[in-house]
Design a protein around this nucleic acid. Sequence first.
DNA 1: CGTCAGATTGAGCAGCTTCAACGTATGTGG
DNA 2: CCACATACGTTGAAGCTGCTCAATCTGACG
Lengths: 263, 263
Amino acid sequence: MPPVVPDRAKIVGPPADRWLRPTARREMTEPIILKLERFGPLSDRDKSAMLAAVRRTREVAGDSDIVSDGDRPIHSCLLTRGFAARYKVLPNGKRQITAIHVAGDFVDLHSFLLKRMDHGVVALTACTVDEVPHAALERITEALPQLTRILWLSTLVDGAIHREWIVCLGRRSAHAHCAHLLCELLLRLEVVGLAEHGRFVFPITQEELADALGISAVHVNRTLQDLRAEGLITWIGDTVTVLDRVRLAQVAQFDATYLNLQA
Amino acid sequence: MPPVVPDRAKIVGPPADRWLRPTARREMTEPIILKLERFGPLSDRDKSAMLAAVRRTREVAGDSDIVSDGDRPIHSCLLTRGFAARYKVLPNGKRQITAIHVAGDFVDLHSFLLKRMDHGVVALTACTVDEVPHAALERITEALPQLTRILWLSTLVDGAIHREWIVCLGRRSAHAHCAHLLCELLLRLEVVGLAEHGRFVFPITQEELADALGISAVHVNRTLQDLRAEGLITWIGDTVTVLDRVRLAQVAQFDATYLNLQA
DNA sequence: CGTCAGATTGAGCAGCTTCAACGTATGTGG
DNA sequence: CCACATACGTTGAAGCTGCTCAATCTGACG
């Protein structure tokens, strides 16, 4: 099941007049538009402006940084293919992943205003990213209040996801936490058309999953075995299948409100 | 050491023309202005608009909700006195605090765009809050792009703090985590003039601290004893004193970058 | 076929939880 | 002014969750 994201790797720069051109129908199925329209209505002008803001498209190899800790980027990165993660590394070498990103997510929209990255963003798999210059975002904030509010909202949803992760780390068992992450990913991937019938491709190692869940890789292994033994999921190769969505959500105490998927 | 926040409890509504009046010097020392100006330059018009956006001021008793989970507020709350916390309660009754707020913080600016609260905000102490109607925020986003960006930025800093909390919960020991929280609070309180010489008033119970740190109250007690025994802090009554700021930061592996306090 | 990354398993141990008791300060009604 | 209640902090003991270390297994690939 290959991702349905159109391959834009070869689009190195948009035509100069793209800012004002009427938006083609094809472009309205971009993951970012699918996602932003879940958050609120966008005019054609808003959508065109969003898509036109892309300066260039970049391919990033798996396991390499899309943005590094300490960078002062001049553009923000919109992930259009693959999985990425925000992470911090402590002086003692321990790593914690603070967010997982899927196609349609801005992985560092906050760098537009925060200026200096206080964490890295790594490509968990090979990724395609659209670069949106901060100057273009600045123009959007000057001229398009509605699009500005929706972009702001998308960073607020990132914050809401962070809060849920805090609850998972502080007050849920590893078992429930792991189930919770899978529930969240399933839903987020469905929004952008990358999951169907409870099944999605998720090429992540147990080591990486451990850094996301704040536990050891050994314990991830045992936790996944439990979830499989309970008949809640299968995880074969890169493909996760949620066998019993209702029970998985119960185990996770999952409540999707925080994802703000319905207006 | 009483808080230095001016008492605005009796200001029930601002004069009708406040939106356009030149801003008085006194108002420029409001915690919210002190905080926002740390994030970027604001014109007098921006500052006046921010202060004028306050509809009314409300006193909230300790231990009661400022905003409740599930609410659809029509205004956002600016904390001007006291301590507040965002929290979620799980079906099994466990509670996790996801953020601690001090004077100058917007405790639910995100409700402007997120509409439905996915968590509660509780007053940890008696609090004073300024209510800013969402309609006023909407007007700001239509007319004042710079102030809009700074407000957006303030929610991004909330997100950055969330990420650091995720790292604390996932990869730091209770000992380091507790030290980290104290380092963070000291710095944030200094910004708004509520901490000096490493000392600040922090009227919180060990039970509440446990819900913030994601551990049990018993373990909080032991952890604080350790920090005291190491000569890093004292905590007498409501007053925390950081005795050795450098060593506390080392124990916490504290790096203030994420608070974005210098531009 | 050897190599390597990643998954799996076992055993011992550390950090933190839970339960329960007790201490201490503050407030309240009689 | 005392008896009692209440809230919060402190202490001890036992147990569970998840960690660490180390070995083994598996599949992909050159």
